[in-house]
């Protein structure tokens, strides 16, 4: 009898544990759009993250944030989004049952290379965070030689001052010593 109860309890726990694990992942799902971006340095893009509540109960006070990783060959590293994005994390007050929330993550593309971006959702009532699939981001380097017409000033002004300086030196030398 005791053995039977123990055996049944173990089966029950296994089923509920599996259900608990599955429930976090299935209850909330996240996706990121667009799946691929090709852009230039300096461009501004916006990722849209969709968070879906697949359960019968509303989810409240969840946090969603975007992450970026550099996957360029030889330069693999996580990215600090300090200069890329102002709002990296969003707090969502509530998503109704079977409802969705679309969040926007605008970003300025600071450096060239190959990257992946993904959205992560955290619900404090669960043990596991939920991640979206990765969006591929290819950023091309753009060489700008004369933005804002900087060259005429950067080259011209020191030249003008140099000419005045030369004039002053010559004028000084001409005075009788």
């Amino acid at each position: 009898m005791k053995k039977s109860i123990l055996f049944l309890s173990m089966i029950f726990l296994a089923i509920t544990a599996n259900y608990a694990t599955a429930s976090a992942a299935d209850r909330i799902t996240a996706s990121i759009d667009p799946p691929i971006i090709q852009a230039n340095m300096g461009d501004k893009i916006t990722y849209v993250g969709t968070i879906t509540n697949n359960s019968d109960r509303a989810v409240t006070n969840i946090i969603a944030y975007i992450s970026l990783a550099n996957v360029t060959q030889g330069r693999e590293s996580p990215m600090d989004l300090e200069d890329w994005s102002a709002n990296k994390a969003i707090k969502v007050d509530t998503i109704p049952p079977h409802g969705t929330y679309k969040g926007q993550w605008p970003m300025r593309l600071i450096d060239s290379g190959s990257y992946v971006a993904y959205i992560t959702v955290v619900d404090k009532n669960d043990n596991t965070p939920i991640s979206s699939t990765m969006s591929r981001l290819e950023i091309k380097r753009v060489l700008r030689l004369n933005p804002n017409n900087v060259l005429p000033v950067a080259v011209g002004e020191p030249m003008i001052i140099g000419v005045i300086l030369t004039f002053i030196v010559i004028r000084r030398r001409k005075r009788i010593i």
């Binding site: 340095m41 300096g42 200069d83 300025r108 600071i110 450096d111 060239s112 380097r141 060489l143 700008r144 030689l145 933005p147 804002n148 900087v150 060259l151 000033v153 950067a154 080259v155 002004e157 020191p158 001052i161 140099g162 300086l165």
Partner: peptide
């Protein structure tokens, strides 16, 4: 002249360097 050259380098880097320009 030195001030102008420093400003030239600074402004050129600001506007053309890959990270500074952003």
């Amino acid at each position: 002249a030195i001030t102008s050259m420093i400003l030239s380098v600074l402004s050129y880097l600001f506007l053309t360097n890959s990270e500074l320009s952003l």
